[in-house]
């Protein structure tokens, strides 16, 4: 009974692997593909380990189990074997080396624009994560979007990431791995999309009540469409003001927004000396409330009446028409 069960456990991964398409195994760009290749390489070795250990385990337990026939069998005194110890130390070392080399190579490769795209001029997009929304600034183009980001296909995009609030993590699994966004820090990541299409992105690092819905869309477009979109935004989108920006950073959910300027004009949260936009009063929840501390650089002291003006604190489902019809994807 046990053996049948164990073989079932071993079969389960194969069953599920064949049964559904997993985003990590369907890379849509060179960055994600390099990681998928690494994962596939490791899977081969790990499957080998699993097969060997499971096989050995099943064989030994079956062969040496206590049965009525072997009641009188007295196991031998046995203390070990140096040869065997060397074998099962040596082989894992070889496997670890086999995994280390491509891991290190990939780690270094991921820091730069992917191979084959070095020639192409990358575009830089600043990512600012806030509670619970994603703000994308295109400094060269002078535009800013919230909760969606349009990129040209086949072009390396350099994301410069920071956070206006807690530690968060920027992840577009179809295009590449993830990296943290942190206040007063900057992290960088390259992504490339092979084809036009819509890809899901989200925060993976827990950051409070609104965490589960902190998602965004990456829309990869042809150069032509992308430029059309840029021109359209430049022409029709409103300007973001500082006080609107202060509101934007409050802990809320919202739909998509588009602006024809960027908040980098007055604050870059990656700067270690930038203003902190913290305001504990907006995070009061249930339970006993403790003392909070006034900070010279905090949000509240600059904006005493912010709560009275925009204190809905709930789901501000504002929407604009520049983000395209995202429901279609």
């Amino acid at each position: 009974m046990k053996k049948i069960l164990l073989s079932l456990t071993a079969l389960l991964p194969l069953l599920v692997l064949s049964g559904c398409n997993m985003v990590v195994f369907e890379p849509q760009g060179p960055v994600a593909r390099s990681i998928t290749d690494l994962i596939n390489w490791s899977l081969i070795w790990m499957l080998l380990v699993v097969v060997v250990v499971f096989g050995l385990f099943g064989y030994i337990v079956w062969k040496y189990r206590e049965r009525p026939e072997n009641k009188d069998y007295e196991p031998p005194e046995e203390h070990g074997s140096t040869l065997l110890e060397i074998i099962w130390t040596g082989i894992p070392i070889l496997i670890v080396i086999a995994l280390t080399i491509p891991t290190v190579k990939t780690l270094y490769a991921l820091e730069e624009a992917p191979k084959g795209y070095e020639e192409k001029e990358p575009i830089t997009i600043h990512v600012t994560s806030a509670d619970w929304k994603w703000i994308f600034s295109y400094p060269e183009q002078g535009i800013e979007t919230v909760n969606y980001v349009n990129i040209p296909e086949d072009t390396p995009v350099l994301f410069k990431m920071t956070s206006a609030s807690t530690m968060q993590s920027f992840w577009v699994p179809a295009l590449g791995g993830q990296k943290y966004t942190m206040p007063k820090m900057e992290t960088e990541m390259y992504l490339v999309a092979d084809n036009p299409g819509s890809y899901d992105g989200q925060n993976t690092n827990f950051n409070g009540r609104g965490y589960a819905d902190m998602k965004f869309e990456v829309l990869a477009q042809t150069d032509e469409k992308f430029n059309e979109w840029l021109a359209d935004v430049k022409e029709t989108a409103p300007k973001l003001t500082e006080s609107e920006y202060d509101d934007l950073l409050k802990p809320t959910h919202m739909g998509r927004l588009t602006f024809s300027n960027t908040h980098l004009e007055w604050v870059n949260h990656a700067d270690p000396h930038s203003k902190a936009y913290t305001n504990p009063e907006l995070y009061r929840g249930h339970g006993y409330q403790g003392k909070t501390f006034e900070e010279e650089d905090n949000y509240k002291s600059n904006q005493p009446n912010v709560m009275e003006n925009h204190g809905q604190g709930g789901h501000d489902e504002s929407e604009d028409n520049h983000g395209g019809d995202h429901n279609e994807h």
Partner: peptide
Amino acid sequence: ALAFVPCFVIGGVTGVMLAMGAADYQYHNT
């Protein structure tokens, strides 16, 4: 103790997969 062996091996090999820094970018926090 017997069940520990196969189950822990699965935990172990996925641990090695997670240990590979570059691959972890896709597994982390999932």
